[in-house]
């Protein structure tokens, strides 16, 4: 058993899970939704095993480090955190249809990583040889994943809300009746961001602590740092708008989608289009 085989199993499981959720949404069959979540759990388990195995494999190669060091490993970890946050949400709320809007993000990550990125285990360059790497990456990606879930829920909100406004026809309403009520979607969006925002804050702080420890500057307006601050501002605006100006519903959903777009740019766009200190994206 190798980690690479297990990662392929994971990718396949996420594909099956997503298709089951789609079928669940279309057919309203409860069993399909249950199937979807079990396959997602199985995929999460396989991926957890694969990440642990890759960690061990790196030690066997004599370059031991946590598998969080390059673009491939970060995309895989991102996908893992998305399914993890979604699973926790499902354990609590059991709205299976949300899977149809969240699993595609996880599948997209795994498929891109497995097919499009260099999967080799590389030794750590001196700049990354620090325990701060693990703390920084874990907190950032758990935050990103919560924002991904919030974005998926917000898309559902906008679909459902526009449907409710236009008045339903019988055929469509069957799919729409699978969606949680918009009040619940709005609340879930807020809850996911309430998980993501503190984690992103911790991610920025651990990043600053690391930068200070390694370079003597906790903040240098590097494009990655600046974009993480932009993301932080957007969600801070979301929270202030919600707490004090009562921005709920559509406006909150749009802010959440914009926030996630900024998050993705912070994670990938900065590496692909801009230059800076986090240059792992260039080393494909």
């Amino acid at each position: 058993m190798t980690s690479s085989l297990l990662f392929n199993v994971t990718t396949f499981a996420y594909l099956v899970s997503m298709l089951l959720f789609f079928a669940h949404m279309a057919s309203r069959s409860k069993a399909l939704g249950t199937g979807g979540i079990y396959v997602a759990y199985f995929g999460l388990l396989a991926q957890t095993g694969a990440i642990a195995l890759r960690w061990k494999e790196s030690y066997d190669m004599g370059v031991g480090h946590a598998p969080l060091s390059n673009l491939y490993e970060s995309v895989v970890f991102f996908s893992w955190t998305i399914v993890l946050i979604y699973s926790l949400l499902d354990l609590k709320y059991k709205y299976r249809v949300i899977g149809a809007f969240v699993m595609p993000f996880a599948l997209l990550g795994m498929a891109w990583a497995q097919l499009g990125l260099n999967t080799g285990i590389e030794p750590l360059v001196p700049a990354l040889q620090s325990n701060w790497l693990t703390y920084h990456v874990i907190t950032c990606f758990l935050g990103y994943a919560a924002f991904a879930v919030a974005c998926g829920v917000s898309i559902m909100y906008l679909i459902k809300a526009s449907h409710d406004e236009s008045g339903q026809t019988a055929g469509e309403s069957s799919v729409m009746s699978m969606f949680p009520p918009i009040r619940v979607l709005d609340d879930l969006n807020y809850r996911a961001i309430m998980i993501g925002f503190p984690l992103l804050t911790l991610g920025i702080i651990t990043g600053a602590a690391w930068a200070n420890y390694a370079w003597g500057t906790y903040w240098s307006w590097d494009p990655k740092e600046t974009w993480s601050l932009i993301v932080w501002f957007v969600y801070a605006a979301f929270l202030h708008a919600r707490f004090t100006r009562g921005w709920v519903g559509k406006r909150a959903a749009w802010l959440s989608i914009i926030g996630f777009a900024a998050t993705i740019f912070c994670y990938l766009g900065v590496n692909l289009f801009l230059s800076g200190l986090h240059s792992y994206g260039g080393g494909k």
Binding site: P223, T226, W227, L229, I230, F233, V234, A237
Partner: peptide
């Protein structure tokens, strides 16, 4: 005013992009 807060947070977000390009 919280309108000012929103204005500042959103302006800072947008303006900060300049320095990353």
């Amino acid at each position: 005013s919280l309108k000012l807060t929103m204005f500042l947070l959103i302006s800072l977000s947008i303006i900060s992009i300049i320095g990353t390009i």
